[in-house]
């Protein structure tokens, strides 16, 4: 067994000890994980952002326009200096503006696709059922129409049940997903470490 596999096996076991109860071995593994992931990110950010922008684009290729972007990034740190912390709001506003703009520019169209996708031609029980579920779930989220109206409240109540069924399906799917993750780990322990499985 190589060192990498052995380390992975030991760390996996250390984490599993938590299932019995919280203990120092588990916490050691957990802290090591946080430390390694932080170190990994520092390296990745340097390799993917600092190096290509500062060393290559600006210093080697002389794309001085990038300095402006760099400056906006640096200004973000101004919030740690109380006297000039207001400066940090400018790049923050830029980011917020970009985020809102991106959503409005690109995320509306997939939504329209969802709307037109709901124009179902009733050819089977499934399509009728699907359409009723879509519409009633939508009615459940009407907040300005009073529920005192019997028609609205009965559709909304049906909508609530539709949502609960969907959440049940989501719950089941998530639990199964977690099992697949566990299976990946158990397979690693039994096949690669203990070599009892194929």
């Amino acid at each position: 067994m190589d060192g990498g596999t052995l380390t992975a096996a030991l760390v996996t076991l250390a984490l599993w000890t938590y299932l019995y109860k919280d203990n120092p071995i588990f916490r050691l593994a957990e802290h090591l994980f946080v430390a390694f992931s932080t170190a990994w990110w520092v390296g990745e950010l340097y390799r993917n952002y600092v190096k290509p922008v500062v060393l290559e684009d600006i210093l080697q290729q002389g794309r001085w326009g990038m300095v402006l972007a760099l400056l906006l990034g640096v200004i973000l740190y101004a919030r740690f200096v109380p006297a000039i912390s207001w400066l940090a709001r400018y790049p923050m506003s830029w980011m917020l503006g970009y985020g809102a703009g991106y959503v409005l520019a690109f995320q509306v169209k997939p939504l329209v696709g969802q709307i037109t996708g709901s124009f179902l031609k009733f050819g089977s029980i499934n399509s009728v059922l699907l359409w009723i579920c879509i519409v009633s779930a939508l009615v459940y989220f009407f907040f300005t129409i009073s529920r005192e109206n019997v028609a609205v409240s009965s559709v909304a109540t049906f909508g609530k049940w539709v949502i609960l069924v969907a959440l049940g399906a989501a719950f089941g799917n998530t639990v199964l997903f977690r099992y697949t993750l566990l299976m990946g780990r158990v397979e690693f322990m039994l096949r690669d470490v203990l070599k009892v499985a194929q």
């Binding site: 696709g113 037109t116 996708g117 998530t174 199964l176 977690r178």
Partner: peptide, 17 residues
């Protein structure tokens, strides 16, 4: 996609996207 994201993503298949 992941099993857990299926309920979230499947409407995009049903709508033909």
């Amino acid at each position: 996609t992941l099993q857990m994201s299926v309920p979230e993503d499947i409407p995009f298949f049903q709508s033909g996207q």
